[in-house]
């Protein structure tokens, strides 16, 4: 379970939004919605440990009961999907996936795991493809596979659906929620549609000077 306790982000001492608290259970995605500039992406950056030094975060974040704030970014094991797929362009699809896979045991086994993952995702012949030659939907699926192969403890989604066109968006959205059903999933979006589709709780970020409901 992922839990945020009185979490807020501040710029020059003033909070971007009123502190929020929430719990995210596996299988029940939680959506944080707010207008652009409300601090949604900064919130995710803080959770993952890559907040720019000009911003500061407060509150506590617990993953499976333990605070993760003291951990460096790469130890938190929070997988994140962005609007852009950010597939590494100097590696082919298979290498991108292997990059996500934990180290070991040997090259052949890694190949096999990657292959199987591709087959399950309906991308069987894609291992040697250049990411640039993939369609938007295929790229999004590879990015999702890559995150999941890294065995994260929770999944964060930074509007990953907004660049896809509508029919694709719905399919990809349900794929994400299905394949991450065993994980706490936290989604930030400015699109109310996303929160509907996620089906779980919705938390709205309010500008700090506005009314405070959380």
């Amino acid at each position: 379970m992922l839990e945020l306790r009185n979490v807020a982000i501040s710029l020059d001492g003033s909070r971007l939004f009123a502190p929020v608290s929430c719990r995210v259970q596996p299988g029940r995605p939680l959506t944080i919605i707010g207008p652009s500039g409300a601090g949604k992406s900064s919130l995710l950056a803080w959770l993952t440990g890559v907040l720019p030094p000009s911003l500061t975060g407060e509150g506590d974040v617990l993953l499976d009961g333990g605070s993760i704030l003291a951990l460096p970014a790469h130890r938190r094991r929070l997988g994140i999907l962005f609007q852009d797929d950010l597939l590494f362009p100097h590696m082919n699809v298979g290498e991108n996936l292997a990059f996500g896979l934990p180290a070991g045991p040997d090259r052949a086994a890694r190949h096999r795991i990657v292959k199987e993952a591709l087959v399950r995702a309906g991308l069987a012949e894609f291992a040697h493809r250049d990411p640039l030659t993939l369609s938007g939907g295929e790229r999004a699926r590879v990015a999702l596979l890559r995150v999941l192969l890294a065995e994260p403890r929770a999944l964060l989604l930074d509007e990953p659906f907004s660049k896809l066109d509508l029919p694709l968006r719905d399919r990809f959205r349900s794929l994400v929620f299905q394949s991450a059903a065993h994980l706490p999933v936290l989604l930030v979006s400015h699109d109310p549609q996303d929160s509907h589709a996620a089906g779980g709780d919705v938390v709205a970020l309010h500008p700090n000077h506005g009314p405070c409901t959380n």
């Binding site: 460096p72 970014a73 790469h74 852009d84 100097h90 890559r146 890294a150 994260p152």
Partner: peptide, 30 residues
Amino acid sequence: DASRVMAVAAGLGYQPGSAWLKLIAPRLYT
């Protein structure tokens, strides 16, 4: 787009030095 690439790598569990060497350096060289 180095800062976001490094954020993705951190999310996948990569320590910064290793992520820089594997993701930034090869593309930078080209």
